[in-house]
Design a protein around this nucleic acid. Sequence first.
DNA 1: GAGTTTGAAACT
DNA 2: CAGTTTCAAACTC
Length: 398
Amino acid sequence: MEVAHTAIIGNILELEWGKEKETNSRQKKVQSDSADFPEKKLGRQLDFTASFGGISAVAVVFPENPQSKQGMDVASLSPAAASVNQQRQPQIKQQVAATISVAAGQSHPLTTASSSVVADEMLLVIINADFLKYLLHLLKNVLFFLSLALFRKPESLKAKTRPNELNDGAPKKQKHSNCKHSRCLKLYCEYFASGMYCDECNCVNCYNNVEYEAVRRDSVGATLKSNLNAFRPKINSSSHGAKDNKEAGEVLMLGKHSKGCHCKRSGCLRKYCECFQANILCSESYKCMGCKKFKGSKERQALFHGDYANNMAYIQQAANATTTGAIGSSGYASARVSKKRKSQELLLGSTAKDPSVHRLGHLQQTNLIRTSIPSSSLSSMSVSRAGTAVGPSKLSYR
DNA sequence: GAGTTTGAAACT
DNA sequence: CAGTTTCAAACTC
């Protein structure tokens, strides 16, 4: 019986879907006669109802439920369309009843009241099946267009996390690279580095496009040869995602830089620093000097409080302290500084030449900053910390 | 907008 | 691997 039931539904579905085209054209003809609705709008609505076939019948099957959304929609489409649907009701019902009786081995036509009830129920099943079939069809279309959008230009996804953009969640303006000497075939070029073709870039002699695909491929090969991970994201986002530090009013990424930054003068608090750009904290294993981008750093927190000018002044002063010998005032670099001393000594005074400076503890180094910075600067620093409005300091870390 | 500074990438 | 140079972006004026 269940097999017969399924067969009936399939049979009727086939019947109805086969009629779809004919019904569609017929309804279009009816509606084109109506001057009350714009043709374009009607077309869309007609397509909708025609595709469903049974949607309009819902209003027919449930006449006691006139508030049914589908029913109301159909009724509001066009009186002519509703009329056609109502005219179709006995036909569909008759088809159902006929199919039932054939499946049950009865003579045709079926005229008993019970068969009519069964036909009503069957109609409901058909409507639901019809609707589901249409939903499936819609879903397929959506998936198709989605796949088109994703695979036609997969790079578009990568573009969301450009290496040189702050990852603070705010929408970023599309930037264009300006390579002049690398032909956009080195990792200097952010497009090349992220595996993209250059898109509306301002580059000179750009080879990072389809036209120079062969050259580009060679360059990719050469780059990969020297570094297998060259095109992998440098920031490995933590599986825990972003940590929302509400107290500090910032969104902190829990990711990690694959190689770590090597900043010397920026304190890792400027956009030169890749960790700063990715909004991640520096780790002890990074080779940055005078790092101020660690948990609990007042310099870093200053970025998220008060006005920007004050914060930048404060950061500059902190960086200034770094370059004038107080490396690693509270950062991670104190133990590593010796490696870079040769270059630093060119810039630093006698204080920096004293190896003991690099072994100073946190407090001692903080004191060193205080002594290496003019008292006027110190006062502005403390004011900046308090977040009071003070004009931007003219002091530079240069 | 030009010039300078910066740090990553490339090179030696 | 370390030091140096090149490069393009960030930054200053």
